[in-house]
């Protein structure tokens, strides 16, 4: 927990992104209902809730992953600041959105390439060809992901030779390399052992100073450990949002309290 006694007034905090009246449909089935949620700049916001509550669905709206599959439909807006663009607008290409935001997945998914090429992938996709610049930025990303020391003398090894925790940190480096404006984590430790989970959590905590983070987690302790803000979702609706310690210790909603205290979920 990292909230000091005196928490700044929410209105004074800069907002990085904001969902406004967001509805989402898988075909005819509505998966998200009227969600309004601010994502504060350089803070970690955690999404919690029982499985099937729509937290991953919500996260995948931000980088338009739902556009990959037919029959999905958004209503409402997700605005990205400061240029105040609606990420969900049909005039905005999903690829443009994905070039600006990055995502880390549930299971480590390194490409069947070398460690170096994994991190360089996003940069190459963005048209970067200069070898020295590539090397510099790959190194920086690996350092930011606290992986450089472990892999610096085997950058040309296949990424699949790394351990699960290292693979996930590689995926974080890959996501960081393209300097995202917002970093999305979809249950990033659900496939990892406790030790690897610990190192990923430390990393997320440290990254907060560099990038705004939105993280979905199935693990409430994790939300309490890494996040500044917490949003509790249930059945596609946002039930409660606030400073993490408020949500955990002074929930306003009975439903949230029941979930947090383990009476339900």
């Amino acid at each position: 927990m990292n909230a000091p006694e005196a928490k700044p007034d929410l209105d004074s905090l800069p907002i990085k992104a904001e969902a406004k009246q967001l509805n989402f449909y898988y075909g005819a089935k509505q998966a998200l209902k009227q969600i309004d949620l601010p994502i504060y700049d350089n803070k970690v916001t955690a999404l919690i809730g029982p499985s099937g509550c729509g937290k991953s669905t919500f996260l995948r709206c931000f980088n338009r992953m739902h556009d990959l599959y037919p029959g999905n439909r958004y209503e409402g807006e997700i605005r990205l600041y400061p240029d105040d663009v609606n990420l969900l607008a049909s005039a905005v290409d999903p690829i443009e959105v994905r070039m600006r935001l990055s995502m880390v997945f549930q299971k480590p998914n390194p490409f069947p390439k070398s460690i170096f090429e994994n991190v360089a992938y996003g940069l190459r996709v963005r048209g970067l060809k200069n070898r020295t610049e590539l090397e510099d930025r790959v190194e920086q990303a690996l350092r930011d992901a606290a992986l450089f020391g472990e892999v610096q003398d085997r950058l040309q090894d296949l990424a699949s030779n790394l351990s699960g925790g290292q693979q996930q940190r590689l995926c974080i480096a890959r996501a960081l390399a393209s300097e995202p404006e917002l970093l999305l984590f979809d249950e990033p430790t659900s496939a990892l052992d406790p030790i690897a989970t610990g190192s990923i959590e430390e990393l997320i905590h440290a990254l907060r100073d560099k990038v705004t983070i939105l993280i979905v987690t199935h693990n409430m302790q994790q939300a309490a450990r890494v996040s500044d803000f917490t949003a509790y979702m249930y059945l596609g609706e946002l039930i409660e949002f606030g400073w993490t310690d408020d949500v955990f210790f002074r929930p306003k909603q009975k439903q949230t309290e029941d979930y947090i205290t383990g009476r339900f979920g």
Binding site: M99, K107, Y121
Partner: peptide, 23 residues
Amino acid sequence: LLREGSYALGATRLQTAFKVVVP
């Protein structure tokens, strides 16, 4: 998951097909 990893980095379908899926 591998394809989504590539799309999430802003790759097109074609880039994903030839740089990730084919290898």
